[in-house]
Design a protein around this nucleic acid. Structure first.
Length: 257
DNA sequence: GTGAATGTTAACAG
DNA sequence: CCTGTTAACATTCA
């Protein structure tokens, strides 16, 4: 369930709990929960795959990892790792990691990299691409400090849409193509959320878990590539592995006078 | 029954 | 010290 858009989907489901007072909190999480009782939930936010429940004395950061889930006013047979009750209403998180964050969230989080945030900032992310030129783009897309909220599905679909080979080095990607990539990341993240809302998620994958390239019919390759220990689906026919660019040589620029 | 899956981190080896 | 590998977490689905 959990890539960035799935967390925004969850946030939207529970946003209306803002203003309600916590009557009980607990679970097998390591985090102390006593500080929540009696406090009013001020706001529900996300930063990539983090779900943030903000209170005036701290924020609960919830991460669903790979298997986590949330049930609203329902329970499973197994214990919740974290739960919070608002009177008769309850949020039950399973297999989720909960931590307390102290102080203002801006101190912990930078939303300029969050692919679904209105604060997302192209210039800032382009700068981060420059800083990470030696990484492969397939690896860098999984870096939450640069592409906050991207998971394996988004990574793979976006590489295809931007026609980039997963092993392409960031420094070899022309600026124009970097901008196309960033545009596709934002676009596909929104499409992902739209499909979550419509209940059609997964019906429009181009390469993820696919066998044939929708562009040219080539066989989709599956491999573990780069440092990322995740399955990578790609079309080696239409996804470009940019070669090193020639060094801009100042000496070959003809002098004007 | 088996294996894989939208993820991350701590512990360990070299 | 830096880098890479492995295990762990414990669920759901095919």
């Amino acid at each position: 369930m959990p890539e960035g858009p799935s967390l925004v989907y969850i946030k939207n489901e529970i946003a209306h709990f803002a203003g309600r007072k916590v009557t009980a909190a607990g679970g097998y999480t390591q985090m102390e929960t006593g500080w929540l009782v009696g406090k009013k939930l001020l706001e529900v936010k996300t930063w990539g795959k983090h779900l943030l429940l903000r209170f005036n004395n701290g924020t609960v950061r919830i991460h669903l990892m790979l298997f986590g889930s949330l049930l609203i006013n329902k329970t499973k047979k197994v214990n919740a790792s974290f739960y919070v009750h608002f009177g008769k209403d309850q949020l039950n998180f399973y297999v989720a990691k909960a931590q307390k964050i102290e102080g203002p969230l801006e101190k912990t989080y930078d939303w300029r990299t969050d692919i679904l945030s209105p604060e997302w900032n192209q210039a800032h992310v382009l700068k981060l691409l420059d800083d990470n030129g030696d990484a492969t783009i397939g690896d860098l897309l999984m870096d939450q400090q640069v592409f906050t909220g991207v998971g394996n599905i988004i990574r793979i679909e976006v590489l295809f849409r931007a026609k980039l080979h997963p092993l392409c080095l960031v420094k070899n990607i022309p600026l124009k193509d970097r901008k196309v990539l960033l545009k596709e990341v934002r676009k596909y993240a929104k499409e992902f959320l739209r499909e979550k809302n419509a209940g059609t998620f997964g019906s429009n994958w181009q390469v993820y878990q696919q066998e044939e390239c929708p562009r040219d019919g080539a066989v989709i390759k599956v491999a573990m590539l780069g440092k990322t220990k995740r399955k990578t689906y790609y079309c080696s026919n239409c996804q470009v592995l940019h070669a090193p660019r020639k060094k801009a040589s100042k000496h070959t620029i003809p002098a004007k006078d």
